[in-house]
Write a protein that binds this DNA or RNA. Structure first.
Lengths: 338, 338
DNA sequence: ATGAAAGCGCTAACAG
DNA sequence: CTGTTAGCGCTTTCAT
């Protein structure tokens, strides 16, 4: 039935089934109070006419869209993908659907995106990170829907938070290396202002090194996001050339850590024998590489699961307090730093 | 302005600006014929009242949503992410926004998803793969909007196609190994019925091996999707144990190929010296690993770019012919098979 | 360039 | 359990 004329509406179904449009409407809701027989007849008529329920009209009338808007820096990042996947799963039970947008690690783009997403009248909004333009903050504050910032612990949260301290996690990593007797430790990445979580990790490295009374200036830039393996390899080459006495390197991500590791392999530098490497994020590569990578697991799926639960709760209770759900990253000691 | 009472509508803005709602509506369209002065006043009033344009109402009245629905098997796959990213970019110029759904490699789930997405009244629909349930095919055929199947060349396309032959690409890989003098070649993955592209690759391997008069039964299962590095390593272990005289392995993905490579490294098997490895997809891991991985680049971004261009064209011209845009994957010979 | 009237397709609210 | 009425917020259409 190639929709030759015009798509059928509930009125058409109602006529075909000999009921009122309202009954058709009820037949399409799971909790609609309709006799089994009439519902069956209505659904049959709908199937017969090739009817497709119109959510747009439903949304306008009921003032509920079933959307939860989500912004992430990039779709091509396994950590954020895990969070979105878990979020999506946790929201589907409430019939909520994710409306996803990519900021490309740019808060100007994020502002534009938030503005656009808000026009679609989502019932909640999840943003990655706590760094926003003034206007974006205003839009979020006035949106009149639950707002959740994830993957960070913002100083001045807009609404709810499900996240962790990126700086704190790296501090634990530095402590691990120091306990292993390393003193000349470098950091790769986090130089891009656009990637706030990356620069937080780098700042955490610097602060931790200083608190241990160690040289905190072995910093190698890895360029603008997205973080890549290639940049990690390039940075490692640079590190070997410029600071050859370095003993260990902490990377802003497992991706750059693997790149660094591959460069060591190319240059015949034994890891961990001569050099230790650590990453961040617990990507699959770190578990499978030889040697496996010491890293930090920030529990991306848990972030999504918790954010979904939070949204469900807030939507239920109309709770207005600002809830902070702290996530505790886990230090995973593996072969690359033994 | 925490929306204490009720969100302002165009009527409120109109009153505040001393114009009719229709003029407010025009002021918000880029091509709306409104005096610069009145537009300025209207936008100022809107900003002042914290007005947020309501797309839902706009969509209902204009019967245009600006959505393009897209289904992919998994959000956590760099190849599909690249396609979606390029697609998104190519559609944004037409103010089209992607409404994304994940099928989890399950055509039953895909059917449910298509049904749900269609209710949102997208203006076009992009589905990954050419394998669908009968009802899904019917829904797509009757949707009255352009349908594009990507990442495959279906025998019986529903609408338009932007894709390539997965079997054909693997055939080229087999030819490469045979030319290198390899005869005992294995294939890892593609055993899961749910991953049609994976099983197409495996089928291509079997057919190619048979056409060369070679043993086509060195097949190792890698379990259900998503394809993982870990499964690649497990499969390699199995291969080494069960068919130790194998000379080369083609994997369903670079991820499994890297897993296989890592297992070789753990067991001290020189690659490519004693054993050759190839993957599929041209993931970043294959370019950075040591040795780098011979693979096939299916141009995921190009698939997205072409699909976006196709949708723009079809939406413009109301063209009804079924267009097929063939993508030609490229064989990338790298260190792992030299 | 601006306005008035009507209505997109559905469902809240109320009635029976 | 079913129906009637009205209207969600915007834009099409037709005037002016």
């Amino acid at each position: 039935m190639p929709r030759s004329r015009k798509a059928p509406t509930m009125v058409d179904i109602a006529r075909a089934a000999g009921v009122s449009p309202m009954t058709v409407s009820r037949a399409f809701k799971s909790d609609g109070a309709v006799t089994d027989a009439t519902r069956k007849a209505i659904l049959a008529a709908a199937e017969d006419l090739g009817y497709v329920f119109d959510s747009v009209a439903s949304n306008l009338r009921s003032q509920r869209t079933g959307f939860v808007a989500v912004t992430i820096p990039s779709i091509n990042n396994a950590n954020f993908a895990d969070t979105v996947d878990a979020l999506s799963e946790g929201l589907s039970q409430r019939q909520l659907q994710i409306l996803l947008g990519y900021t490309n690690y740019d808060i100007i783009e994020e502002e534009r995106l938030i503005d656009q997403l808000l026009r679609r009248r989502p019932e909640a909004l999840v943003v990655t990170g706590g760094n926003h333009t003034a206007r974006a903050r205003r839009l979020l504050s006035n949106a009149g829907i639950p707002v959740v910032e994830i993957w960070d612990l913002p100083e001045d949260p807009i609404g709810h938070v499900v996240g962790f301290s990126n700086a704190g996690a790296v501090r634990a990593m530095v402590a691990h290396f120091v306990a292993r007797g390393k003193t000349r430790i470098a950091f790769i990445g986090g130089d891009a202002e656009r990637d706030k979580r990356g620069s937080d990790r780098r700042a955490g490295f610097i602060a931790a090194m200083q608190s241990h009374g160690l040289d905190s200036t072995r910093l190698i830039a890895a360029g603008p996001p997205p973080i890549s393996m290639r940049e990690g390899a390039n940075s490692m080459r640079q590190l070997i050339n410029s600071l050859p006495d370095t003993e260990a390197v902490i990377c802003v991500s497992d991706l750059s850590a693997f790149g660094a590791l591959s460069e060591c392999q190319r240059q015949g530098i034994p890891v961990p024998g001569r050099f230790s490497v650590a990453g961040f994020g617990d990507y699959e590569i770190g578990a499978v590489s030889v040697p496996s990578l010491t890293t930090i697991n920030p529990f991306p799926r848990e972030i999504g699961t918790r954010a979904a639960a939070l949204i469900r709760d807030v939507l239920d209770s109309r709770e207005q307090g600002h809830i902070v759900v702290p996530i505790t990253p886990e230090l995973l000691l593996r072969e690359s730093s033994c």
